[in-house]
Design a protein around this nucleic acid. Sequence first.
DNA 1: TAAGTGCGTCGTT
DNA 2: AACGACGCACTTA
Length: 174
Amino acid sequence: MNSDKEANQETCELPIHTRDGEFLAQYSKKGLCGLSFPSRNSRNGDPLRDAPIQAQIRRWHEETTHALENALAGQPVREFPPLDLSAGTDFQQRVWKILKSIRCGKTLSYGQVADEIGDRKAVRAVGRACGANPIPVLIPCHRVLASKQKIGGFSGGLDWKRKLLAREGVLLLD
DNA sequence: TAAGTGCGTCGTT
DNA sequence: AACGACGCACTTA
């Protein structure tokens, strides 16, 4: 577990409009710490609408926006904003780091990720860690498949996983 | 073979 | 103590 769990509760949420709907990016003082898929009920009568946004966060948000646009188009992301993954456990952070290394259009199996961690038997734990990924799409947990190129699962809904993989040209077996 | 069942194993709640 | 975004061995038809 992390010691400074409650330390920075201060986060700033900003929307990102895409052809796939309105994502929501969440920033801490350290960087991008969350990204959520479009949801129907997220029309915001935003009480903090006029709150001043720090220049640094605006800059990060620009980077996030560009990164997300590329990722949604199935193209490699050139530049990332700083990512704040400090909310995750050590194990989760190890998994997420491996996910970041999977290049666009490539995939790993849950088992292969477990191998890279150094413990094949941790396969199921890897699946759990993938599901806990706070920044989907940008941290490409959708590029982790079950064995034999089967789709596996996805916390954001399997439709999203299929869509993202299809745009990167990945073929599934299912 | 294709589809279904059972169980090992590990981090998290 | 119980539960998974798994994987493998092992039934069945």
